[in-house]
Design a protein around this nucleic acid. Sequence first.
DNA 1: CTGCATCCAATTTGATACTG
DNA 2: CAGTATCAAATTGGATGCAG
Lengths: 114, 114
Amino acid sequence: MREEDFGICPYVTVQKLLSGKWTLIILFLLAKKTMRFSELQREIPRLTQATLTKQLRTLEKDGLIIRTVYNQIPPKVEYSLSDMGEKFKPVIKSLKDWGDEYIMFSKKRDCTKL
Amino acid sequence: MREEDFGICPYVTVQKLLSGKWTLIILFLLAKKTMRFSELQREIPRLTQATLTKQLRTLEKDGLIIRTVYNQIPPKVEYSLSDMGEKFKPVIKSLKDWGDEYIMFSKKRDCTKL
DNA sequence: CTGCATCCAATTTGATACTG
DNA sequence: CAGTATCAAATTGGATGCAG
């Protein structure tokens, strides 16, 4: 891998896109259905408002999700996957399958859990 | 998603395992072939020795790679994928495919590059 | 309901020098 | 060759308070 490859290396790109601590979970939830801000908050209780907002802005800027604002009182905002986000669905699936395998594998290794 | 799900959620698990800035590239390189420390360094010139060491230690601790030490002078250490690392190969493939699509997509969006 | 601004803490990475 | 140790820099996430 040469210096000039970094701008076009898919692994570097993916690493940057998915680097957020909650990125994967947010994409996974939105892959199931379009959700409002408050729904996402309820689904991920350990994530604060401020942080959720930041991560959603990043995902929007990166073109992975769509933010739809309904001009009404009280405000309503919906988040959904963009086209690129939709194309991410198979990746989510393979990540989940591997993650599940890893969890089983870890439990086998970690005898304190048996 | 409830509080107690976090310990067994595959997405949280995967996020933690892949959170290192160079993790994906290292796994990708080792998926192609077993490599020595210095080879990895050459392949990723922007990564310093100290950081490479840390990331390799983390990957080893997480059970994704195997570190083999040859007791000789000068020292020789080889890194290769573990069984779990081998199982990660299809994920690497799907991440790469999506990353490549994303790069093409971005170039279409970013008119300054045309 | 949604979310911004600010400040702070924690974590991660990088630079540099040194070693068996 | 393959590290370790130390310190600085950068990035990130979290807490809190305020607002349209």
